[in-house]
């Protein structure tokens, strides 16, 4: 294991995060606050409770997941896309680091950043809505698992993308719709029966449901299933990355 190598990549990426601290923090905090003002207070006051939870509190886990997914994907994809674009990837390719180490460095840094952000949003939410977390351990577990999984997913997108458009299209066309339709702002039980069935094909449903369970102790799908689906997606991403590196996909040809 080239531990110095992993540390170098991780630090490089974290330095990038802290350089753009204002953008990376102010923007999500501001949008979250807007969500709380509009959905939590204005609309939420007329929504009534969902499963005995106020609407404002109900949307917190979903909002955090929404940000976690977007941030993980964009951080990791940008992190590996930049050196490809700027040409500095030559150094990474000529260095005595294995792909596992590259992955730990980039995905680790991207996940760290999005977890930090998730916690920040959680704190911001507390200003608007009083809430308690029933299973803090599980909450952290879901947070980490999701951050790592989607950072990995972002890393794959960054490897695949050969233009800035492609880099943005996946988060925009896939991640955001899936989160919105994944029950971030409503309980899937509020949907007509057919849509409830269809929704179950959306992996984000399991993430949000599991995460919300860790907050309030109630879930729309079985928690075990949530955990299983999330881990399954992690394994899928890992397998794909392993295949990409084994074949040297596009990069070294």
């Amino acid at each position: 294991m080239n531990l110095y190598g992993i540390r170098a990549i991780y630090r490089f990426e974290m330095a990038r995060t802290f350089r753009t601290l204002s953008q990376s923090i102010i923007a999500p905090v501001l949008t979250t606050s807007l969500y709380f003002i509009v959905f939590g207070k204005a609309i939420g006051s007329r929504m009534g409770q969902i499963d005995n939870i106020s609407y404002g509190a109900f949307i917190i886990p979903g909002l955090i997941m929404l940000n976690l997914l977007n941030e993980s994907i964009s951080n990791a994809s940008f992190g590996i896309y930049m050196p490809k674009w700027a040409g500095t990837i030559y150094e990474l390719l000529s260095a005595p680091v294995s792909w596992i180490e590259v992955l730990i460095g980039y995905v680790g840094a991207a996940a760290t950043k999005s977890v930090m952000l998730g916690l920040l949003i959680m704190g911001t939410a507390r200003i608007f809505v009083p809430y308690e977390i029933v299973h803090p351990g599980w909450m952290i577990a879901f947070l980490l698992l999701t951050a790592v999984t989607f950072s990995l997913f972002g890393f794959i997108i960054g490897l695949w993308a050969d233009s800035f458009q492609k880099l943005q299209v996946v988060p925009m066309l896939i991640a955001t719709p899936l989160t919105f339709l994944g029950g971030a702002f409503y309980s899937i039980h509020m949907l007509p029966p057919l849509w409830q069935e269809i929704t179950l094909f959306n992996p984000v449903v399991y993430l949000i449901s599991g995460f919300r369970w860790s907050f309030y102790g109630m879930a729309e799908v079985d928690v075990a299933l949530s955990l299983g689906m999330t881990s399954g997606f992690l394994v899928l991403c890992l397998t794909f990355v392993w295949w990409v590196f084994k074949t040297g996909y596009k990069i070294r040809n």
Binding site: N2, Y4, G5, R7, A8, I9, R11, F12, A15, R16, R19, A86, G87, T88, Y90, E91, L92, A95, P96, V97
Partner: peptide, 20 residues
């Protein structure tokens, strides 16, 4: 092919670490 925002000192330290 160089980094843009890193300092000279940071970038040489990065290289040394990367090479283990």
């Amino acid at each position: 092919h160089t980094d843009a925002f890193e300092t000279v000192w940071a970038t040489v330290n990065f290289s040394r670490g990367l090479f283990g």
